[in-house]
Design a protein around this nucleic acid. Sequence first.
DNA 1: GTAGGGGGTTAGCGGTGACTAACCGGATGA
DNA 2: TCATCCGGTTAGTCACCGCTAACCCCCTAC
Lengths: 195, 195
Amino acid sequence: MPPAAEPVADKPSRREQILAAAAELFARHGFHGVGIDDIGSAVGISGPALYRHFRSKDAMLGEMLTAISEVLLDGGQARVGAARSPHDTLEDLVRFHVDFALDNPALITVQERNLGNLTDPDRRKVRGLQRRYVELWVEVVRTAVPATEEPTARAQAHAVFGLINSTPHSRHLDRAQMADLLTAMALAALVPARA
Amino acid sequence: MPPAAEPVADKPSRREQILAAAAELFARHGFHGVGIDDIGSAVGISGPALYRHFRSKDAMLGEMLTAISEVLLDGGQARVGAARSPHDTLEDLVRFHVDFALDNPALITVQERNLGNLTDPDRRKVRGLQRRYVELWVEVVRTAVPATEEPTARAQAHAVFGLINSTPHSRHLDRAQMADLLTAMALAALVPARA
DNA sequence: GTAGGGGGTTAGCGGTGACTAACCGGATGA
DNA sequence: TCATCCGGTTAGTCACCGCTAACCCCCTAC
């Protein structure tokens, strides 16, 4: 068995190919607007072959969204772990989210739009991960700007997610400029005028 | 004919009731996730009775989205017409959008998520209206902050829409506080530190 | 050389969803 | 009084969609 004992990232496995294609389609047409055959033909196989890799269409969405939420939470925690000044931590966190959104527009779109199409247990899991990610932001914001009330910080976090995640809907600047712009806007929106 | 010759806003007509209910459902479950029977029973009638009021399910979505786009464009133009200082005009425009989003969370959600489910002609129409609304914002932003390049202003407009439209996803503050917070954040994100 | 299994195929089933057909009751205006 | 029509009903059609069944080909390991 030449290529085995290594479930690591070699080349994109079939599963990953499928998830990527499905994300693109879900983002464009919505979960129910995409057929199993559409996903299949997007990766060059046709229709029911997908069931060799996933138990159901729901399972694809579930795996996709939990993966995203875990990447965001883990990445966020890592950024916060590397302790620097409160404001620098906030900036790191913003930058991290901006990078993720710019590099994974389809995933961001699916996460925003298709949470409601998850299975109940999947939704619970994803909601939990998202809640922890929001709490991370709340803490970081309140550390950087101590005057902020907790509900306000939560509302700000959601608003900034909306700002950053709007990225897939506008492709006017190149990646670097877009990253800088979004980061600057998010920070300006989070820390009151004058810093 | 007692009540006629007045297509004006009396009490919510059946059509309007239906559109409101449909908007709520589309926002929650997505266009394809909602059945004709769901919409019907949401207004107390059942199933195919809807076809006395709309030609098709697509037509409902089409009418809904063009109406939203027209309200936004008209309202925006009205705000800009009442000429004040450039910065006050921008603030008015922001406030207008914030109010609309807070008062019509379902509509905002549908407009954000279900543009892709429109018929081709409907999508063209809505896209056109949206484009003009964005251009309005671009002009107002560039008048208030002349240093802004046009593509940057466009990207900023989209980002601020994302910020404001995130409203349906967070209900942590009461309406007034939320309006103030979103307005402040949007303005901070649009006009560079120090004004 | 061959057994086994991973990954693909096509055919078909059952359910559901948009829409139509056919019918109906009651308010209205001549 | 009665024709009309508006807005509702239920039954039914047809397409499509998720998923299973049954089959098959190759690649690998013994």
